[in-house]
């Protein structure tokens, strides 16, 4: 969707934005970026605001899967970033029904948060678990990669086989493939392997979420979109789960610039498709 106000408000409606890092209360080792999201989710589950989290977990190798985490330990085990879109499938719906989860937080990409919000606003199906979703957390996303093509590219050019890669770290400038050795590739070199569908997407932060979060330079940023989420975040801060501080104007402008970049890219590719 690309409503007219997209360009006027590239980050969507929000009430506040913070730099966030994990507090002393939770020990997280392998989080992607300081573990702020994981720590916040732990706060939510400890205080009964939610009874489960739907998030991505590493299955084997680079493959991931969507899992339901019900305890703090399970949440911590899902920490760490994923490098592809993981599809929500029927198995997830079954799990939600079976485990009888009624207050869930879902961590997803802007596209997923978008359809989940649609599902929550207008549940078209009797089986939509929309009223069980309490929190939608979106991760900043500049596009996801076509997995197979990128793996064969890395193999051809850098001689690193898919089976050697243990982990992938993505930042705005480069992508690191980590195994026994480390291959660092500039983002621009791989940008042609972005999924075409992602090139059409105008949403960088996930405007339909309750909280949008991402790693900007060296800090986790959270954009809070409603009062309830704001209150939760402040409470988590007071309880020492996370540490929040006001974000600088400069950093905010940087995020906005990135969002506008994605919107103009989407307009360009949309014109080609139509």
């Amino acid at each position: 969707m690309m409503p007219s106000w997209y360009l006027e408000k590239p980050l969507g409606e929000y009430v506040a934005a913070y730099n966030v890092e994990a507090g002393n209360k939770i020990q997280i080792e392998k989080a992607a970026s300081g573990g702020a999201i994981t720590a916040f989710l732990c706060y939510l589950i400890d205080h009964g605001a939610i009874d489960g989290v739907i998030a991505a977990k590493k299955a084997k190798g680079l493959e991931g899967e969507i899992v339901v985490a019900r305890t703090k330990e399970e949440i911590i085990s899902t920490a760490g970033s994923r490098w592809q879109v993981l599809p929500f499938t029927l198995k997830l719906k079954e799990t939600v029904e079976k485990e009888n989860l009624n207050k869930m937080a879902i961590v997803g990409l802007p596209c997923q948060v978008n359809f989940l919000r649609q599902m929550k606003t207008f549940p078209l199906l009797e089986t939509d678990f929309s009223n069980r979703i309490k929190f939608l957390i979106s991760l900043f996303c500049f596009g996801t990669f076509a997995q197979e093509s990128i793996l064969s590219y890395i193999k051809e050019k850098y001689g690193m086989k898919a089976s050697e890669i243990k982990e992938v770290k993505i930042s705005q400038r480069e992508i690191k493939f980590i195994g026994e050795r480390e291959v660092e590739v500039p983002f621009d070199e791989l940008s042609k392997y972005l999924q075409v569908g992602c090139l059409l997407c105008p949403d960088y932060t996930g405007i339909a979420s309750d909280i949008s979060t991402g790693f900007v330079e060296d800090k986790t940023v959270m954009i809070v979109r409603n009062e309830v989420a704001e209150k939760m975040l402040r409470e988590a801060h007071e309880m020492n789960y996370i540490k929040i501080e006001e974000i600088t104007q400069e950093r905010m402008e940087r995020i906005e610039k990135r969002a506008i970049e994605k919107i103009s890219r989407a307009s360009k590719y949309m014109a080609q498709i139509l």
Partner: peptide, 30 residues
């Protein structure tokens, strides 16, 4: 319109929305 045009992003929205289970994942795409 979406999958054959290669603009599917594999988010799983269609699979969660199908009332009859007609959509399923094959090789990472619906």
């Amino acid at each position: 319109d979406i999958i054959l045009q290669n603009i599917c992003i594999s988010c799983g929205a269609c699979i969660l929305s199908c009332p009859t289970g007609a959509m399923h994942m094959v090789g990472g795409k619906p």
